[in-house]
């Protein structure tokens, strides 16, 4: 690293002042404030909080954030096209993206940690293992340890989600999309514009199909299996993990759609395509998370 820095040090571009950061902060504030009121009002937790206007703030906050991101990136793209960004700047962006993905990995790790802890430790304890014989005997005498936990200690029942139907198909879809995206990326590097556009578009389309199937799966879970967020720790971990993953796929898909449009509009060169690369990394990350999900949430 150090030798590289030494050779490639160029004049650094410190960007112009920009209103977007503070606009983004205001957007986040409105989003958070609105979400708090909205959640309280719509889940009836607090009778005294008539937060019926909460969604307004929520929507406004979201709109501001979308607008802010749009404008911010527009500025960045413009500056990049003006040639203001050095190779060093490009490396900064890339490293920033890598560390951002690392933080996302840790976010998922928290939920995976929850799943492992609940499944490998809490469940046996509630069934009397370790130093918890009395926990079982006195508090939860009926409880039997099994995963998926189709009967909770309190006696709620549900069904376990199988792995080899939709989830397996979804695995194939995501793996394929990763592959098509790699083809697209190579096409970009080789200067093959048509292949680039087509394969990026295919990847985005696969993302949409994945999401559609996931909606179908949720529908099935809620309406036919009685598997909900409220179905004990099994339902909790199942929906939180797959849900946050789905949320990330949504973001990734939007990312890919935007990339398709930009590629079609002639953006990016074989050498200079940080945004595209970031999108690709993000997509692969989402893909890898899914593999873990498939193994630990569905199969095991």
């Amino acid at each position: 690293m150090s030798t590289e820095t030494k050779e490639k040090y160029e004049k650094y571009y410190v960007p112009e002042q920009s209103p977007w950061p503070i606009v983004g902060a205001i957007g986040l504030f409105l989003l958070a404030f609105g979400a708090g009121n909205f959640i309280q009002q719509s889940t009836d937790k607090v009778a005294s909080n008539d937060g019926s206007w909460g969604w307004l703030f929520l929507a406004l906050g979201l709109a501001i954030i979308v607008y802010m991101l749009w404008s911010w990136w527009k500025d960045a793209i413009r500056e990049s096209k003006q040639g203001l960004y050095s190779a060093q700047m490009d490396r900064s962006f890339k490293q920033g993206m890598m560390w951002f993905i690392t933080s996302e990995v840790m976010f998922f790790a928290a939920f995976f940690g929850g799943l492992f802890y609940a499944r490998a430790l809490v469940m046996p304890w509630l069934a009397g293992e370790g130093n918890n014989a009395m926990t079982h005997a006195i508090l939860w005498p009926e409880f039997v340890a099994q995963w998926p936990m189709i009967v909770t200690p309190a006696g709620e029942t549900t069904e376990g989600m199988g792995a080899w139907g939709l989830p397996a198909i979804n695995t194939l879809i995501l793996l394929t999309s990763s592959w098509t995206l790699t083809i697209a990326h190579h096409a970009l590097k080789d200067g093959n514009r048509n292949a680039l556009i087509n394969y990026t578009a295919i990847s985005a389309a696969l993302g949409i199909i994945f999401l559609a199937l996931q909606v179908l799966e949720y529908h099935h879970a809620y309406n036919e299996m009685g598997l909900t967020l409220g179905s004990g720790i099994y339902g909790s971990t199942f929906f939180m993990l797959t849900g946050f993953h789905g949320f990330h796929v949504t973001i990734g898909t939007i990312f890919l759609i935007v990339m398709t449009i930009r590629c079609a509009g002639g953006d990016f060169t074989a050498k200079n395509h940080f945004a595209y690369e970031a999108g690709a990394w993000y997509w692969h990350f989402v893909d890898v998370v899914w593999l873990f999900l498939f193994i630990f949430v569905y199969i095991m």
Binding site: A118, L139, E156, G232, S236
Partner: peptide, 11 residues
């Protein structure tokens, strides 16, 4: 959800 509630298998 019951992450932190033993009745649902959490802790």
């Amino acid at each position: 959800t019951s992450f932190f509630d033993a009745a649902g298998g959490g802790d």
